[in-house]
Design a protein around this nucleic acid. Structure first.
Length: 280
DNA sequence: CACGACTCCTGCTGGC
DNA sequence: TGCCAGCAGGAGTCGT
């Protein structure tokens, strides 16, 4: 389940292989994921070179340009949804059931696979700066690993939020990249109950939460970073790397910090895990 | 505006 | 052993 760290690791793994590469062909085998995959990609992408591989929230942005009279310029917007992944495989590797899109890069194939098809593959024409004006990206919130994500900012932004803190942290229009797993883990690290109303948490406690979020995400990136090469080049295996979860998916098991029992509740339709002993 | 419910989809798990 | 209900979840959209 890709959250910000997984997408960032994916980006770091792909960038060295993709930047400068010439796109020779495109194979689209699924008509739609969450949205229709633009059929025009078949004409637009061949002949383009990859200029950069960026990340905005959980979206990957692949800037492309084809020089010449018909100069094509645009950005491939990719979201991995719940179960998506991007891998580099040898050309000619037969596609499996959920391998929906291939980009032929000459000496390798960039393959997008997504069993549940919650992902996104879209195209935003124009120079790289324009990509972020795409409706899906324009409404994205603050990057939690950027300098903008400060205690003051979060404390102010959250002042109107009377609901429980955990779903608020997962609101990508506020802060991007914090999904269900890292929301639970960050709150555990900070010792804050996921049930507590966001605007009933003191500034002092946000000064603990902000670095807890940063560290949770950074640690996960570091954990994944050690296996980037294997990940990007692997053509098998299910998965995303794991962080050592303190509470996530540990309902009924002893809390690693206090020995209490980890509890599971539902918030906004999602499972939340926390330790009632450590988190208040 | 804030917030929860619903929705998309498929694969895995657990209960009988 | 097999079947099926239920769950998993990112995030847009809609209704309250």
């Amino acid at each position: 389940m890709p959250e910000l760290p997984e997408v960032e690791v994916c980006r770091r793994g792909l960038a060295p292989e993709l930047v400068g590469a010439l796109i020779e062909g495109v194979d689209i085998r699924a008509p739609k994921l969450r949205h229709e995959i633009p059929p025009a990609l078949r004409e637009l992408l061949p002949g383009c070179r990859v200029l950069a591989v960026r990340r905005r929230g959980k979206y990957l942005l692949v800037d492309c340009r084809r020089d010449g009279a018909d100069g094509v310029e645009g950005c491939l917007i990719i979201h991995l949804g719940m179960t998506g992944n991007l891998r580099l495989v040898p050309p000619g590797t037969p596609p499996a059931r959920h391998d929906h899109v291939d980009l032929l890069l000459g000496d390798c194939l960039l393959r997008y696979s997504d069993p549940r098809r919650f992902g996104v593959v879209l195209w935003q024409p124009g120079p790289p700066a324009v990509a972020e004006s795409h409706p899906l990206l324009a409404s994205q919130g603050v990057e939690p690993l950027s300098d903008t994500f400060t205690v003051d900012w979060l404390f102010a932004a959250i002042s109107k939020r009377g609901g429980p803190i955990k779903p608020v942290l997962m609101d990508s229009h506020l802060v991007v990249g914090i999904g269900n797993i890292y929301a639970s883990e960050s709150l555990f690290r900070a010792g804050i109950s996921p049930l507590r109303a966001a605007n009933r948490i003191s500034r002092a406690r946000y000064s603990v939460l902000v670095p807890a979020i940063r560290e949770t995400l950074s640690d996960a990136i570091a954990a994944g970073g050690s296996s980037i090469r294997d990940y990007v080049h692997s053509d098998g295996g299910s998965g995303w790397f794991q962080i050592q979860a303190g509470v996530y998916d540990r309902a009924g098991q002893p809390c690693l910090r206090c020995g209490g029992v980890v509890r599971q509740v539902r918030q906004a339709g999602r499972s939340t895990f926390y330790c009632p002993g450590c988190q208040h």
